[in-house]
Structures are given as structure tokens and as C-alpha cells.
Computed example of a mutant assay.
Amino acid sequence: MIKGRTSSLAKRLKKIAEFVFVDAPHELSFIYQTTLAKGAICESSPMLSSPPPPLENCKNKFAWLVAPNSDGSTDVNWKVAEGPFDPLQYQQQTEGYDTSLSHLKNVFSQQGSFDGILGFSQGAAMAALISAQQEQLKGEMDFKFVIICSGFSLNVKEMERGIIKCPSLHIFGNEHGKDRQIANQASKELTSLYDDGCSVIIEHDCGHIIPTRSPYIDEIKGFLGRFL
């Protein structure tokens, strides 16, 4: 997913940055939401099963963080969701950090060194967790900056270490930015945890993406230029 989301950005930055794409370690089960048949009303049996998408057309999805009730197992077949999807479910996905951190330590060991970390959406929440522990991770994961795109903060102990001093670039949709996944206020709350003196904020009106048109790309290049 992150490779697709950042392909345009990588192309625009190819003269100054090389991207290494990393899949998260938690594989997700195939879950789909059934729908009511048109005009059907039945409180005791609210859902009439619609067929799931063909598996051959579906790609495996991975996550950095999972819900506390996740058993870690995956299923090769579709499962029906237990209830309607909660648009704020990402706030409840707080488990699996230690596994993801160990996974990234291996990436740094085998493929490093890296100047910075970029995360998008849930990956941005993971990047924020890592940047909050930059000092503690020295020697295992050395990096100079973090880029957080459509990010949000999680209420976990790793984010309770005071103001984050890691140089940071925050890219997210403004109040009218049409990001239907991560609310503007959630991204702002995460930004407030960083030192104002070493953070840069780019708000845009492009939805749940990383914008690459001017003036946004120029601001991104300006931030990266500090570390060349």
C-alpha cells in the first residue's frame, strides 16, 4: 500500500532521495461487510449476506498495529464482519508494537543505513512511536528525521515521554481537506507532541494522499534539503 501511495512522491524526489519500502509484519484476515438487501428491515436478522469478493482479485494486507482482541491468526477465506465497520477503529489498534519494532530493527540491520523514516496513515502512527523513542533506539535504529503523513497519535506509554525532539515533517489534510480516513484534528493533536523548533507542517486539501504538486512538493524538498 505505501509503495502505491508514495510512487508519485518517490518519482518527484528521485534526484535527492531513495525510497526503501517495508511491509508491516502483521498479516490481516480477509473480512468483509455484508449489506442489507434493498428495502429489507429486520431487527432480529439485520444482514442478508452478500457474496464476498473473489479471493483471486484480493491482495494480502498487512498492519503495523492490531486490535487488542486480535489472535494473530489469518484465514485464507473471507469472514463476515461481526458488526458495522467503525471509522475510528484505527484508534483502538494499539497492540503489536513490539513485533513491528523488532521487524524494523531487522530492516535497519540488514538494509540500513537510513537517513529518515516515512509513514502514512497507520504507518505514520508507527513512525511517530519510533520517533518518540529516537534516543532509546540509538545504535539499533539511527535516523535523522521522520515524515508523518495523515498521522494520528495513540494513547500508549511510548508516546508519554514528553515533547518529541526528532526533526519532523507533518503532512495531512486541512479542516476541509476531504481526508475521510484520518480527521484533521487527530493529525493536529499528533503534531502538537513535537518540538515546534524542529517540526514543519504541511496542510493540504487533497484528501487521504501525499500531495506532490506545488507548493507542497517544494516544501517537502525544502525539509529534506536540511539533511542532504
Rank of each mutant, 00 (worst) to 15 (best):
I2S: 13
A10L: 03
K15R: 12
A17L: 01
E18F: 09
F19A: 02
V22H: 08
P25S: 10
P25H: 11
P25I: 06
H26L: 06
E27K: 15
E27G: 04
Y32H: 10
Y32A: 05
Q33P: 01
T35H: 15
A40S: 13
I41D: 14
E43I: 11
S44D: 15
S45R: 13
S45G: 06
M47T: 14
P52V: 08
P52T: 08
P53I: 04
L55C: 08
L55P: 10
E56K: 13
N57S: 13
F62R: 14
L65G: 03
A67L: 07
W78L: 08
V80G: 00
E82H: 13
F85Y: 08
D86L: 01
L88K: 03
Q89C: 13
Q89S: 12
Y90D: 04
E95N: 13
D98E: 15
T99R: 12
N106H: 04
V107E: 07
S113Y: 06
D115F: 00
L118N: 10
L118H: 08
G119F: 08
G119D: 07
F120T: 02
A125I: 10
M126Q: 02
M126E: 02
I130G: 00
S131F: 09
E135C: 12
G139W: 01
E140D: 09
D142S: 01
D142M: 02
V146W: 01
I148G: 09
I148F: 05
C149M: 09
G151K: 06
F152L: 08
S153Q: 15
S153K: 15
N155T: 12
M159W: 07
E160W: 00
K165V: 09
G173L: 05
K178D: 07
R180W: 06
A183K: 15
Q185W: 01
S187Q: 04
S187E: 04
E189W: 00
E189K: 09
L190T: 04
T191L: 07
S192K: 05
D195F: 04
D195A: 07
D196W: 00
C198T: 15
C198Q: 12
C198K: 12
I201F: 00
I201T: 13
I202N: 05
E203H: 02
E203D: 05
H204I: 06
C206Y: 03
C206L: 10
H208S: 11
I209L: 14
I209M: 14
I209F: 12
I210Y: 06
S214F: 07
Y216A: 02
D218I: 00
F223K: 06
G225S: 13
F227C: 07
